[in-house]
Simulated assay, not measured.
Amino acid sequence: MKKMDFQLWNAICILDLDIFDSSVVISCCSKWGVGLVVVGLEAPLAAGLANDLVKARIISFGPSTEDAALEGSKSFI
């Protein structure tokens, strides 16, 4: 996996990580000893990434699949 050249307080951005594949994200977290995952995009949240991270005992910041689906279903007129 390719990492960016900068680090801030041990935060690392991995550019080529497939965030839609929970098993890849979980594997990466295990490999790098990640203590917290912040999921900011709606699509991976709706696909269940936060739920899968919790099941894998990895702390995540982001709504569950059900909450993300509710937010994504809103239409603003």
Rank of each mutant, 00 (worst) to 15 (best):
S64H: 00
K3F: 14
L41Q: 14
Q7F: 10
A69G: 08
D18S: 05
I14D: 09
V25M: 00
K3D: 12
S64F: 00
D16I: 05
I14L: 15
V34I: 15
D52V: 01
A46W: 01
G72M: 15
D52N: 10
A56W: 00
A43V: 14
A56E: 02
F76N: 12
I14S: 07
L49R: 03
G62W: 01
M4P: 04
C29P: 00
A43P: 09
A43H: 10
G72Y: 07
N51D: 15
V24F: 10
S27I: 00
D67H: 12
C13Q: 13
L70R: 12
G72H: 07
S30A: 14
P63N: 02
S27D: 14
F76T: 11
L8D: 06
G35V: 08
V24W: 09
P44S: 04
S64P: 03
V54C: 10
D5E: 14
V39L: 06
L53V: 04
I19F: 03
P63Y: 02
T65N: 06
A50G: 09
S30D: 09
V25P: 01
R57M: 11
S64C: 04
V24C: 14
V39H: 03
A68T: 06
S64Q: 03
A56K: 00
S27M: 05
C13R: 07
D21P: 01
N10P: 03
L45T: 07
S73F: 05
G33P: 00
L8V: 14
G35F: 07
A69Q: 13
I12T: 12
D21C: 05
I19L: 08
V38A: 09
I58H: 00
A47D: 06
K31M: 09
K2H: 15
I14Y: 14
I77E: 10
F76Q: 12
V54R: 13
A50E: 05
A56V: 03
D18Y: 03
F76R: 14
G35C: 07
P44W: 01
S64A: 03
I26H: 02
R57A: 13
I12E: 08
L49T: 04
S75G: 08
L15R: 10
S22C: 08
D16M: 05
P44K: 01
I14Q: 13
G72A: 15
G40N: 11
K2Q: 14
L49V: 06
I26Q: 02
A69S: 11
I59P: 02
V34E: 02
K2T: 12
C13W: 09
I58G: 00
K31N: 07
A69N: 15
R57T: 12
G72P: 05
L53N: 01
A11G: 04
G40D: 13
L70S: 11
I14V: 15
R57G: 09
T65C: 11
K55L: 13
V25S: 00
L8E: 06
V34G: 04
L53Q: 02
D18Q: 06
G72E: 11
E71Y: 09
E71S: 09
D21L: 03
V54N: 09
M1D: 09
L53M: 05
F61Y: 15
D52A: 12
V38Q: 10
I12K: 04
S64Y: 01
C29E: 01
V25E: 00
S60M: 01
I58M: 01
I58V: 03
S30Q: 14
C28D: 06
D67A: 13
G48K: 09
